[in-house]
């Protein structure tokens, strides 16, 4: 009896352990599924946008879509249209819709010249209007290595042609480098002759210039002597001038004090004299001796300057 009882208790413990294990396993499984679902964005709110491309090259379903390098969505569908073009639909997180303007464009870029391709949404200049949901954006494909190579080839071919022409012209015996060198040789010979003549003339001018400079030196010597003499006499003259100025200043100062009263006195005296003379003129018997001012008569002179005597 006791053995049976012991067996029952062990079996119950085992059943409890098994149930716990199964419960934890279920929890882990649910957590994994939830994580996968969240990671896949099934619970995120998204908005779809589309664009049309000429080719589906480097575009695939699930390909990341970025804005300024940040992943904001993914390509949800790539399908071939009836007209042969490729319609691409993208799912973009609703949180990043504010960056997609109505004039935004989708560019297919490559990381470096040979890296993996990514789709980059480039917002347009007009930030005031956002693109509506389901809007069709314009698409462009960044140049890859082949395009770059083609561009380089297109640039290089005309340059090579020009090089060919230039080298041909340089090789021309008449107009090219040989002819030019021959003409340079001739010119340098003529230049040598010209320089020789110039040297002879400069030597002549130099002789004259030396004579002129010699004369100028003499003149400067005289001038120096004159200035020296003036320099010796000048201090004395300045002293005398200063003395004269001092005298003049003294006289002026004295005159400033004495002259105005004298002038005032003179004016007053003149006024008094005028008054006295005027009064005297009106008194008897002087008034009978002085002619009172009267209307004047000037003597007639039909030719006051004698101009009639001779033609002027």
């Amino acid at each position: 009896m006791s053995l049976l009882t012991q067996h029952d208790s062990d079996a119950a413990a085992l059943r409890r352990g098994t149930r716990r294990f199964l419960f934890f396993a279920l929890l882990v499984t649910v957590a994994l599924v939830a994580a996968i679902v969240v990671r896949q964005g099934l619970f995120r709110q998204t908005t779809s946008y589309s664009f049309v491309a000429n080719s589906a090259q480097d575009i695939a379903k699930g390909q990341a879509v970025r804005i300024a390098g940040f992943r904001v969505g993914a390509v949800s569908e790539v399908s071939l249209k009836d007209d042969g073009q490729v319609a691409v639909t993208m799912e973009i997180d609703a949180d990043h819709m504010r960056f997609i303007t109505h004039d935004a464009r989708v560019e297919l870029r490559k990381e470096g010249l040979v890296g993996s391709a990514t789709l980059e949404i480039v917002p347009g200049p007009d930030k005031t209007r956002l693109a509506a949901a389901q809007a069709r954006l314009t698409f462009s494909r960044a140049d890859g290595l082949a395009a770059l190579a083609n561009q380089v080839r297109d640039e290089f071919i005309p340059i090579l042609k020009d090089i060919k022409l230039i080298t041909g012209a340089l090789a021309d015996p008449d107009k090219g480098l040989p002819g030019t060198l021959a003409r340079i040789r001739e010119s340098s010979a003529a230049l040598n002759i010209l320089l020789a003549n110039g040297n002879r003339q400069v030597e002549g001018i130099g002789g004259k210039a030396i004579r002129v400079l010699g004369k100028a030196e003499d003149d400067l010597g005289h001038l120096g002597q004159t200035l020296e003499a003036a320099n010796k006499r000048l201090p004395g003259m300045l002293d005398r001038t200063q003395q004269m100025l001092d005298h003049v200043e003294k006289i002026t100062a004295e005159a400033e004090i004495s002259v105005p009263p004298v002038l005032r006195d003179g004016s007053a005296v003149a006024a008094d004299v005028r008054e006295i003379v005027s009064g005297a003129k009106q008194t008897w018997p002087i008034r009978n001796m002085v002619d009172a001012p009267a209307p004047a008569t000037l003597k007639a002179d039909s030719d006051p300057r004698g101009e009639a005597g001779r033609a002027r």
Binding site: K299, A300, D301, S302, D303, A308, G309, R310
Partner: peptide, 15 residues
Amino acid sequence: NEANETANAWRLIAS
């Protein structure tokens, strides 16, 4: 008694 004019007259006559 107009000496000025008399001289002028003589000058004009001479001219």
